[in-house]
Design a protein around this nucleic acid. Structure first.
Length: 416
RNA sequence: CGGGAUGUAGUGUAACGGCUAACAUUCCUGUUUUGGGAACAGGCGACUCCGGGUUCGAAUCCCGGCAUCCCGACCA
């Protein structure tokens, strides 16, 4: 994409009402736009990051048998009444609205009810199970207090997968598998080194649920980490019994603030029972479906990456989630000739390039913007670089660039 | 929902109860520049959040509302 066609502009200063690092940098870079407290629009650059993360998650979900669908944003009161979660006294942060005919509906809050209700129509035999269904969708929560920029909004984008298994054994096997898949996702988006699988309260059908917590001072949660075993315990379940369960001692634990970037639950028959979601086993006996839920907040993940990996100059995206692979800067007389030619070439090879082709922007401004926007690879084409024999190449994480040839660049970008 | 703070050009700041609300940046014009948010000159841009009140006079003081942020509570 040519930067001259990108309508967003970078800002030198963040709005004063944004205190959190993630919102400051994302707004300064033109990734997001604040509509109101806790509600942000994804601008073109922000959407590209969200799409990258979505694709990574999608690939992983599909690898373990996940099937994607899209549940509706408007949710039925009758369906929610089956689990007694429609009442504001039970769930107090609903967004609700009313149809012209007076019917009350809710704005998608979570998906257990929706899936259970839908599957009642399709599942009847053990041959229909297991099923692993997932959504990417916008979720609405009427939080009394949104906070921390994009990290805790009233409207956010997430992936939720629900598993429907024949029994606990089948469920447990999948549950263990998804733990690995989740950790792989955090690895891929660059948070692996900072993210711990964390024991949290389990609810009715399991002693524990598991959260994925990324170490950050911006986090809302407090966890206790065992660095050696690579596990953590959420403060909310931190007691002697848990320590014994997990075979850890207080001395081996470090207390840290962390951001919850995902969580997985064993639901058992908590939802299948009220919805009478059952199947006939091979003996012809009626059995309840055994469920689990698995969520990752995509917008929160974007915020976490910015909180965790940025530096004083701006954002440092891991290549896997960067809106573009290459930030190409053209300077002086080279802009419309050699730089443009390189842009055409790389784009033709399928490489995603953000080409700073702005004629009136100074070199310093382009460098500062490149640092702020955070693309992993920066390539400068200028009379100076050409005189030295090629292009100047620098990773976002490096201080000094070096001159390389076009074929060396293609090597770095894994094309030949 | 309790407590605290703040609302002034797009953004960041300034202005004793008193002159045409100032400066920087963004943006526009021109000239000169072209490797770290360049320089000079000129210009556009504000019902000072909204509504009342006090006063000869309000961005400034008072009351109400709204909005935003922070702490706490809450968070399938």
């Amino acid at each position: 994409m040519r930067q001259s066609t990108l309508f967003t502009k970078t800002k030198k200063e963040a709005p004063k009402d944004e205190v959190s690092k993630n919102a400051q940098l994302l707004i300064r870079g033109g990734f997001i736009y604040k509509e109101m407290a806790g509600v942000y629009t994804l601008l073109p650059l922000g959407l590209r990051v969200a799409d990258k993360i979505t694709d990574i998650i999608k690939k992983e979900m599909n690898s373990i048998g996940g099937v994607e669908m899209k549940t509706s944003a408007l949710q039925s009161k009758e369906v929610w009444e089956k689990t007694n979660r429609w009442d504001d006294a039970v769930v107090d942060n609903w967004f609700k609205t009313t149809l012209k005919n007076g019917t009350e509906v809710g704005l998608s809050f979570t998906n257990e009810e929706a899936y259970s209700h839908i599957l009642k129509d399709f599942v009847s035999s053990y041959k229909d199970l297991p099923l692993y269904l997932y959504d990417f969708k916008t979720i609405f929560r009427n939080e009394v207090r949104s906070k921390s920029g994009i990290m805790r909004g009233r409207e956010f984008y997430w992936k939720a997968l629900y598993s429907f298994s024949k029994n606990k054994e089948e469920h447990d096997a999948f549950y263990e598998k998804i733990k690995d898949v989740y950790m792989r996702i955090y690895d891929t988006v660059g948070l692996g080194a900072y993210t711990y699988i964390t024991f949290a309260s389990g609810g009715t059908f399991a002693k524990y649920s598991h959260e994925f917590q990324t170490i950050s001072d911006a986090g809302e949660d407090t966890i206790y980490i065992d660095e050696v075993k690579k596990i953590a315990i959420n403060e909310e379940v931190f007691n002697d019994e848990v320590l014994v369960d997990l075979g850890v001692t207080k001395d081996s634990l470090v207390q840290k603030k962390a951001i919850e970037v995902g969580n997985i639950f064993s639901l058992g028959s908590k939802f299948s029972e009220p919805f009478e979601l059952t199947y006939k086993d091979n003996q012809g006996e009626e059995q309840l479906v055994y469920m689990g839920s698995y969520g990752i907040g995509i917008t929160r993940l974007i915020g976490t990456i910015v909180e965790t990996l940025s530096d004083e100059k701006g954002i440092v995206w891991p290549e896997s989630v960067a809106p573009f692979t290459v930030q190409l800067i053209g300077l002086g007389d080279s802009l419309e000739k050699e730089a443009n030619a390189l842009y055409e070439k790389l784009t033709g090879l399928g490489i995603e390039v953000l080409f700073d082709d702005r004629i009136h922007a100074s070199a310093g401004e382009k460098f500062a913007d490149a640092d702020l926007l955070g693309m992993s690879h920066r390539v400068v084409v200028s009379p100076r670089s050409l005189a030295s024999g090629g292009f100047e190449y620098k990773k976002r994480t490096e201080q000094e660039g070096r001159i390389i040839t076009e074929s060396e660049l293609l090597e770095i970008l894994h094309v030949r």
